[in-house]
Design a protein around this nucleic acid. Structure first.
Lengths: 156, 156
DNA sequence: TTGATTTTGTTGACAAGGAAACAAAAACAT
DNA sequence: ATGTTTTTGTTTCCTTGTCAACAAAATCAA
């Protein structure tokens, strides 16, 4: 396995471990809420005029799936939907008071996750961090282009 | 959002895009096979004495899920199970001829994926690649330790 | 040795998410 | 203006994966 492959496999491992640990902690602290629900709350709390489509894009899921999750959050009284008077198609979401509580707890957790991994970041220099950031941004840009290519292929 | 968070979010995006693109391509070339099945074939082809437990650990899934996937692969005639005479508990898998065909096609695809992203790696120096590899390894090590801590907490 | 514990794999009930078909609204084309 | 296309969200059906309970084998403890 060459270094490029090692890096990709390492990132895959890294991602899966972070997801696993964060999910575990989150569902331990916020009992009764699934991590997917909490993430949804986070997005709605952080972004302007969030709707099913934006949620789906952000989470790499289908609109179908997000439609179901938001419905569930509404029935739990964590979010509510609203529309703008001049647009009868798009449906936006906002947090209820209960939702804001969960949002706050989530923020605290986020800090905990940061503390948990701080040691790793303290071991590297600012310059090294910049190198990685630059790489990740370029790679993302490249994959965006590749996805656009795919999209064009489908359309034609 | 600070640089550390940016990096983590960037990695998340990166991971999801790679999964999406590879899955799309794979199920286009290997019609009739799901990417989860092909990945399973890859692991069985690459590792010694693979069983349900090892597959589950590698793919961050439950043994239950892997038990079902391997069962499906057996019914499709892609893999077969075998046991060692001195162990009546563990069940291992190996590829059939049909499975080896799929394995080969997958290897070709792997090369295609590498070609697709080559440009990004060509833009960075060997030294920069080493810096990232080192970081990823250290971070993985750290998370392994954290997972062990969690495991101990559950046990006690 | 033998009783307790752990590991391994499977099953059935359930939940989460995807695919496709759809309706309604908006945007576009001409 | 009006017919066409695109966007948005929902629903139904289906697949995939988890959870919990379980059985059987292996390992451990003493």
């Amino acid at each position: 396995m060459n270094k490029e492959e090692q890096l990709i496999m390492g990132l895959r491992d890294l991602y899966n471990k972070i997801v696993f640990l964060n999910k575990f902690k989150m569902e331990d602290v916020l009992k009764g809420y699934k991590s997917s629900e909490v993430h949804c709350v986070e997005y709605i709390g952080k972004n302007v005029e969030p709707n099913v489509t934006k949620l789906a894009e952000y989470f790499y899921m289908t609109r179908s799936a997000m439609s179901k999750i938001t419905k569930k959050l509404i029935s739990k009284g964590i979010i509510e939907s609203y529309q703008k008077p001049d647009n009868q198609k798009e449906i936006y979401f906002r947090l209820t008071e209960k939702g804001k509580e969960i949002y706050k707890i989530h923020e605290e957790l986020h800090k905990e996750f940061y503390e948990r991994d701080k040691v790793v970041f303290e071991e590297i220099t600012e310059e090294q961090l910049d190198i990685m950031l630059s790489f990740v941004k370029k790679y993302n840009k490249h994959l965006d282009d590749e996805m656009k290519k795919q999209y064009k292929n489908i359309k034609s």
